[in-house]
């Protein structure tokens, strides 16, 4: 299971870089208002080089062509590291499915006639990836997942889908080593493949990220991790004198 970080709005450039420095697979960005998620994702993408940027996009917050263009540009800014977490919001599964289908058609590189458009268009630039990964969130996510085959973001271990190679999830860290070890272990046992972790409020991020990279990531990164490695003293830093 791979571990990532949920970035609180506003500090994406700083925290995305720290998440990358701690070896996490990705970071989830969003925004309180529609559109801000694109800005947050651009900051996270521009200041990292390997981190997957998972952007939570409220479907229907702009017309699909504009959303598709912005996400294609973001995928290029990110060098092909974008993952879209499509939030169904208040939409029915059917309506969300239409919007999502329009986005994915536009990314395909084929001429398509989007809903409401008077003429077919080809979206340029195309995304950097062959296909932008799409995960689902929101009330209609389970139903939309069943019809589209796209993975929903699980918020409880019992909601991890029993099939599919990608089974993303989200959980909150406490900052307590034993409790967070149990949390990570529970999610791995539930079958999650990508766990996005919220930082506990009021804790210094680097201390929690060190807990994640030193203790949690190794434990969920192999079967039977020997704890002697993470519990031994950290190697001394380079003693730079000038």
């Amino acid at each position: 299971m791979r571990l990532g970080l949920v970035l609180p709005p506003g500090g994406e450039a700083d925290l995305a870089g720290r998440a990358e420095a701690h070896g996490l697979f990705g970071a989830l960005v969003g925004g309180p208002e529609p559109g801000q998620e694109m800005i947050a994702a651009a900051y996270a993408a521009a200041t990292t080089e390997a981190l997957r940027v998972v952007v939570r996009v409220p479907l229907h917050s702009e017309q699909p062509v504009t959303l598709a263009e912005e996400l294609a540009v973001l995928d290029n800014v990110a060098g092909g590291r974008l993952v879209v977490l499509a939030d169904t919001g208040e939409l029915s599964a059917g309506r969300a499915g239409q919007d999502l289908a329009a986005l994915r058609e536009l990314w395909s590189g084929r001429p398509v006639q989007p809903p409401g458009a008077a003429a077919p268009v080809m979206l340029t630039p195309a995304p950097a990836q062959v296909e932008i990964p799409v995960w689902l969130d929101g009330p209609a996510a389970p139903e939309l997942s069943a019809s589209s085959g796209l993975p929903p973001l699980a918020l409880r271990p019992a909601d991890v889908r029993p099939h599919g190679l990608v089974r993303p999830a989200r959980a909150a860290l406490s900052g307590d080593l034993d409790a967070d070890r149990a949390l990570a272990s529970t999610w791995r046992a539930a079958g999650a493949t990508h766990l996005l972790l919220e930082l506990p409020p009021g804790r210094e991020p680097d201390a929690v990220l060190t807990l994640v990279s030193r203790h949690l990531a190794p434990e969920v990164g192999m079967v039977g991790f020997p704890r002697v490695i993470s519990e031994s003293a950290a190697p001394l830093p380079w003693p730079q004198t000038s």
Partner: peptide, 22 residues
């Protein structure tokens, strides 16, 4: 610009954000 063969940038806000970020 939009829908042009050369990929002329169709989304300036994320592009501007990427330059401001660095």
């Amino acid at each position: 610009h939009h829908f042009f063969y050369d990929g002329y940038c169709p989304a300036l806000l994320p592009a501007a954000a990427s330059a401001l970020a660095v």
